[in-house]
Amino acid sequence: MPADTNTTRSTGLHVGEIRPGVPKVDPIIVADNITRSFGGLKAVDVEHLEIPRNAITALIGPNGAGKTTLFNLLTGFDKPDTGSWSFDGKALAGVPAFKTSRMGQVRTFQLTKALAMLTVLENMKLGAKGQAGENFWVSLLPWLWRKQDDEIEQKALKLLERFKLDAKQDDFAAELSGGQRKLLEMARALMSDPTLVMLDEPMAGVNPALTQSLLDHILGLKAEGMTVLFVEHDMHMVRHISDWVIVMAEGRVVAEGPPDVVMKNPAVIDAYLGSHLDSDIGVVTGRVGVVKEKKK
């Protein structure tokens, strides 16, 4: 399958013995002592976590493990009770969401947030950074932003073509299917030339026919030098494309490591994988016909 042909798995990402919170050779995100409680429930309690640069890291765990909450905390959409974290060496504590995005850390959402009553192309153009015409006064003088807007449009059209959405450019995003909206959201995030792309369940609700192209796109991001961090329940996808897997349960990081190693970890099997580990998850989810794993 193309997923294995166009990129190779990154190895040797960590330093020392593999355990939760193991230091990485070249971390892009370093988080320390992050806690967040909702009432009496400690949703996230992470002592130390490093995300490796230019690799695809999967964040897995059962429902309610705190994956999305951790995402929200790292991107500034929520504020932790304690803790500090940095992105690319810059401290992020207290930085609002829109600024973390400007630094190059762009996220998508579990429930897709396509801007329904904007066209696909407008959705895309909104993603570009540093637009002069987004200033109130400059926007009144079209000749000051027209040229930049045209360049942004060219870039958007190229990306749409890559994501096979170019035929839909003038449609409202509301008219797209769920899977196409996922693609649009990912493409829109790429308009800002991010260094870290954070995808919250990119496969949720996507039909199996689109799964393959989404996988390819995610692998393509890594090939272009970006770092990907994604939350996913589809073990098959995790096993296929991720270079590193972080397992959360009850707000804590219970295990991490390369996918093959993590999937054999008894703590992970207890917490998450359960009895289906031995059978191919693809059989369980019914996707085996679409994404065929190479037997080793």
């Binding site: 969401a97 904007l118 995030a189």
Partner: peptide, 22 residues
């Protein structure tokens, strides 16, 4: 203008627009 695009985006979903750095 692009200003109007951002404003209309906020009408649709302000978190999405926030995630895009506005």
């Amino acid at each position: 203008s692009p200003w109007g695009r951002v404003v209309k985006g906020i009408r649709e979903d302000e978190d999405a627009v926030r995630a895009l750095g506005k």
